[in-house]
Design a protein around this nucleic acid. Structure first.
Lengths: 330, 330
DNA sequence: TTGAAAGCGCTAACAT
DNA sequence: ATGTTAGCGCTTTCAA
């Protein structure tokens, strides 16, 4: 059934030399060990002829490192994470590391299981956007001692974190409307206990209080009809500005507004927390606060590299600035 | 630096039993080997106490299978692939397999390298959306003998393929405009040699010829200004319908049309080959041909499972039907 | 009912 | 300049 793979030993035997010699040569250390040019050539040829593919596991088992970083994402179909994923993978690759990506769908149980599996695979480190409160993860992280970097969503207080200051950014957002709104509707969807979302909401609350703006919050039903009713109801109550708490909610909200024949920005203003590649193509184009996804990804990898060298450095929280994408909806 | 991980042997020694016993018990085969209940309990306790995590590599090395499928994608930031990726990972997981995802960015060289790395990791099989013509991949696939399923983009004639009939779907698309167009502009971007794109184009050519419609094709410049000029130039030449050859091109095209102040569908009609989650939220909503991504993903996994059982079954090409998403732009 | 030992493929210390 | 060998952590056959 399974054609046995060619091993180092096969090459060694075919050539009448030892495994060690072959190993040295194929790892480019032939000269270092003074192996004759002729023999080196012979070995390379034979390896090609037999279509030798080194067994990565055997090597890892022996060397105790896998040159693999686990990447735990909450939702790969969200373009924000997709982009982050892409950049992280590229950056890690350029540093000689592979990335093992898993998608948790914001499911805590699945997250636990998948993390355990990553650890079983002896990954050298883990970059993670945790689902939710990280309480459940702590025991797992304690089972292992590999470096962990939290990305986009914070984790343990004294672990590395790379992301944005959601509270601050949210409170600044309120001042971005061209005309000061009287009543703002903040919209979330799904799990409000996700830390980033609750921080954003808190930021809005604080800032609106200070500036005397009324703030209401709804958590959008996943039932289309109900969601329509929710929004309609709020808008009939003098809401003049909307802040969806992430890009996916913004899209859902825009769809609802369209169905309700409510015009943005005439009837209501809107600024999305989180940008989306399509916002600039929409009518009107959607004003948004853009998270520096490239930087978040790059710095996450950077932190990981430092950790891999020196596991004892204290955790650092790196908070990056967002960029305000001034478009036509506010 | 690296705190050594607890191994089977550590448990065995701590308890004064043999590795074998511990292995049996922890793999749930304690009863099968008539190991006393008491000892089994003791072993489980000790394992927990020492926070034992089995070494997946050692196990794989020994057993010769990894329960891991490699997934090679052309662009994970394209929502089509992101969705496919998500479903494939979920489905494989439910069948006891992990997924190792890599992203090639449609870069042939990178694709080769990444595929080699997957093979080194002794993956049990590979699901792949190849970059381009697969000629370059054939030698690599011949180096190994693991099952390969081509997904979305076809590969070797006699290998498994799950996707759509791009030529047929494209030719049907021409008949979908509400009013028969006189001159259609097909738009691509980046690499036209991607097989799906060239098949779509061919389908359009065939069908337009038959129905006496003029067809022109441009490959959009990645230079914004140039792209604007390209589209403007074509539209001034009596084009009354546009078919972007995939969803990302559709978005780019819509952005250009907006900047040129050309109204869809009044000035020009548009149908996108490939749907996008945001098309229904746009003004006007964008009519599109939707690929059955869920089915493609599910059937790809199904094929892989069959192959893993019986590697000798002949390759099957499974062509699925697209769904026409009737919206407001055509 | 349990233990000893071989071996998966590789690397590196130690011989020669 | 190259070969021998131990051992990474695990499973499994054979022995006791």
């Amino acid at each position: 059934m399974k054609a046995k793979r060619v091993s180092l030993d096969d090459i060694a035997k075919a050539l009448g030399v030892s495994k060690a010699t072959v190993s040295f040569v194929l790892n480019g250390r032939g000269d270092e060990f003074n192996i004759s040019k002729k023999k080196q050539e012979l070995i390379h040829e034979k390896a090609k002829e037999l279509q030798y593919v080194p067994n990565f596991f055997a090597k890892s088992l022996r060397q105790g490192e896998t040159k693999t970083i686990g990447l735990v994402l909450a939702d790969i179909s969200n373009p924000f994470y997709a982009e982050m994923c892409k950049i992280i993978q590229e950056t890690l690759y350029s540093k000689g590391y592979n990335t093992f990506i898993v998608n948790t769908n914001d499911d805590k149980e699945l997250e636990k299981t998948l993390m355990r599996e990553l650890i079983q695979r002896s990954i050298d480190g883990m970059i993670i956007s945790p689902c939710n409160t990280i309480d459940a993860l702590i025991p797992i992280l304690h089972e292992t001692h590999i470096p962990v970097v939290f990305s986009d969503r914070p984790g343990d207080e004294n672990a590395d974190f790379v992301g944005i200051d959601n509270m601050k950014e949210a409170s600044l957002l309120i001042g971005k409307f061209k005309n000061k709104p009287k009543k703002i509707l903040a919209i979330s969807q799904h799990d409000t206990s996700i830390q980033t979302i609750s921080e954003r909401l808190q930021g809005l609350k604080d800032a609106s209080k200070k500036s005397g703006i009324e703030l209401v919050h709804i958590n959008l039903s996943s039932e289309r009809k109900e969601a329509l009713a929710q929004v309609k109801n709020e808008l009939s109550n003098h809401v003049d500005a909307i802040i969806p708490l992430n890009n996916m909610v913004a899209l859902a909200t825009l769809g609802i507004l369209q169905e309700l024949k409510i015009n943005v920005p005439n009837d209501v203003k809107l600024i999305s927390f989180d940008d989306h590649e399509v916002f600039s193509f929409m009518t009107p184009s959607v004003t948004a606060l853009r998270q520096p996804v490239n930087k978040i990804a790059a710095i996450s990898v950077e932190r990981m590299m430092e950790r891999l060298k020196e596991s004892q450095v204290p955790g650092k929280h790196q908070l990056l600035e967002c960029e305000f994408m001034e478009r036509g909806s506010h």
